[in-house]
Amino acid sequence: METYPPLAGPFALGTFSSGNGPAFPGLVTGDRVLDLRTVPALGAPPDDGGLTTRTLLERWDDALPLLHAAGGSADGRWLPSAGLRVHAPVEPRQILQSGANYRTHVIDLAVAHEPEGGRPAEQVRAEVAAMMDRRAAEDQPYVFVGLPSAVTGPYDDVVIPAWCAKPDWELELAAVIGRPAFRVPVERAADHVAAYTIANDLTARELVFRRDMPEIGTDWLRAKNAPTFTPLGPYLVPSAFVADPGDLQVTLRLNGEIMQDESTKDMIFDVARLVSYVSQTVELLPGDLVLTGSPAGNGMHWGRLLEPGDVMEGTITGLGLQRNRCVAESARPVPRGDA
């Protein structure tokens, strides 16, 4: 029987479906899932658009104690988790992604991107380490915008587009917003984080830098936002159950071999600092994601990028496991809407 890493706390939230039925929010405890639509105390959201994890996040302060009570009750419709499909746990309106936030990762990337015959690796490492120290001292995170259309489920296939020559993995801790956050100070920013989950922020490495317009710099639209390039989940683990988001182990295995295995202690800017920084410009809304950056050990570091047939397994302490198989676009085309 397959085993999964334990979740922090007594329960987590997810989005599930059974057979061809509609997706529904569920409370996960052990090997069971409670269909939260069958819990009368939660009621229907005010707009009557159906209960979802996002509508629960929109009234998180009221919903959390009700979820505690539901998890300890026999009421409602409990289902075995083995028979359910697990979807991305939330549909975010906005995704804000932190770049260059792990010291060792940035240094390794700089060495990997140095042209052949360029500066010695030791010189690159020293220069980038000095840059990271300066960034930390100046207190300026680097954040860009991701697209919700790139999100896919924690066990869904990742489709490598036909044009993508260098697909890479980047496992990350994602903070999920509960209370709206706009211009919040650092000391209050953590109060706006309802939960944590796992994200894999895939990157087409060959498209990160615009060679036709080098003065413009990076192109995150093309490099990171293809459909299925952001596997998310499996679950939302309430922040109350995560003792210290600055001390979690982020581990990615490729075909069973460990590639990333680093603590969030290596982050330059912690979750509170990132949420506060983003909120100075953007009004963060319930269900929005703040991705905190990826640690060392990506494919560029190993000189081994993703290929069809590869299986990625990502875990973060207390947040569960996601597993995604890579397929070629020609083998598994992404569905398109009607023109």
Results as ranks from 00 to 15, higher is better:
R325E: 14
E262R: 13
D157W: 04
P10K: 10
A190F: 10
W163A: 08
A137Y: 05
D61S: 14
R273W: 03
D75P: 00
H192P: 12
E313N: 09
P148M: 05
T203V: 15
M300R: 12
P80G: 05
G14Q: 11
E114T: 10
V124A: 11
K166M: 04
D288R: 10
L147V: 02
A195I: 04
A12K: 01
E2H: 12
V28W: 08
P167M: 07
G83M: 04
T281W: 11
S149I: 01
T3R: 15
W169E: 00
R332M: 07
T53P: 04
A199R: 03
L289N: 07
S149N: 01
P214V: 01
R205S: 12
Y196M: 07
A150S: 14
G72A: 09
R210T: 03
L236W: 09
G303T: 05
N101A: 04
A150P: 00
R205W: 10
L79R: 13
E329I: 07
T38L: 05
P161C: 08
P80S: 06
P92R: 06
V186R: 13
G217Q: 01
Q322K: 01
R332G: 01
G287H: 00
P238I: 02
A112S: 15
G293Q: 08
A204T: 07
A331N: 02
E215S: 14
L109C: 13
Y142E: 12
N298D: 09
I268G: 08
A23E: 15
I177C: 09
L67Q: 04
T15Q: 14
R332T: 12
L221R: 06
R54W: 02
L67W: 03
Q94T: 14
D75Q: 09
Q94P: 02
A8E: 05
S98C: 15
P333K: 13
R119Q: 08
A8W: 02
F24M: 03
A130S: 05
N225C: 15
V158P: 06
L289C: 07
F144S: 01
E58G: 15
L171G: 15
H68E: 15
Y277I: 07
M132C: 12
Y142V: 14
G256C: 04
R54L: 02
P227Q: 12
N225T: 15
L51T: 00
S18H: 13
P45L: 11
P6V: 08
